[in-house]
Design a binder for these strands. Sequence first.
DNA 1: AAACGCTGCAACCGCCGCAAA
DNA 2: GTTTGCGGCGGTTGCAGCGTT
Length: 358
Amino acid sequence: MGRPPCCDKLGVKKGPWTPEEDIMLVTYVQQHGPGNWRQVPTNTGLRRCSKSCRLRWTNYLRPGIKRGDFTEDEEKMIIQLQVLLGNKWAAIASYLPERTDNDIKNYWNTHLKKKLRKLQMGSSADYQDQQNTKDHRFTSNSTSSTTSSSSHSLSRGQWEKRLQTDIHLAKQALNDALSIDHHKPIFLPDHHQTTTKVPYSPQTPAYPSSTDNIAKLLKGFMKNSPNNKTNKTTSNSSTREYSSDNHEVNTNNNNNNSLSGESKTTTSNSGGIDLSQAFESLFGFDRSFGSPNNSDFSQSNTSPEGSIFQGESKEELRFTMFENWLLDDITTGGGGEVDQGKEDLSNFSFDENPDFFD
DNA sequence: AAACGCTGCAACCGCCGCAAA
DNA sequence: GTTTGCGGCGGTTGCAGCGTT
């Protein structure tokens, strides 16, 4: 059944991406915008399948991706959203625009599951049970869910849509309530914005801050390069550095030093081509690029992805309020002054609404 | 120092939904 | 109405790095 995988073609490269490939991909996306992934390998000369290109972009190179450890707030939010949405990682990720669905999924599988299991050990078994049931809410009807789902008249797709509509309405209500400037578009999660096709304007450098991500990659690559074995740092750790850079950025306006410092180090250590320098000259990005609140994002207005960061402070405020609501729900059970949208969501419980599916 | 097991993450695989032909 | 193909998503795997023995 189904079509053969698109990557079965001969000569298609698999495995980890090299910085050179990343640069090729980012260059292309900068010029043409994301999308039309099928053309990417052809037009760039990359020996990768289109899916791989898209994945690399969305999970790694896309501007505005925050890497590294999850904050406690993010963690709580993921847990809360997972309870609400199940394993709909893309949907969850849409509430955490700086995180990719893959990251969240990985974090859930590697950290949160364990954490919740530990919680279970410590007398909160009920919660974990809930997690488990909800974990399997969307999976192919296994055991008990098979019997129960057969009694539900709504198909999986139907009730998911219904759920998403509910959430969307609640979100809209929440946004309306929180919206100060109604001339501004309602903040919608990344997901909603990227699925809306916005004409790409090649005149504007729409994805400058992907340079940020690449530069970090280069850092890791340099450290890992065979010529540089003494500095045994993984790409993971380099991305962690990136994360901490991000967090420190407000207190350290010279965050670009972290890169230039790295560049110096890598230049002197690698002895070969300084890729980060080559990269820098290729894109001519300004040296303050290490900052998440630098002009990179504000330049991205024309891009659907960059637009997430448009007017970031205000939207961030709204997001924080939404986040607070989510977190409040964990700690307080959703009390206090809530608007209709909030109420709808915070009071919703699958357990208390068994007829939701009917 | 070597061997082994564990962990975390990047990437792949296969399926699905949707739109165009 | 059917077929085709692309983009997107969630589950899973492979592997490098790390900690322990």
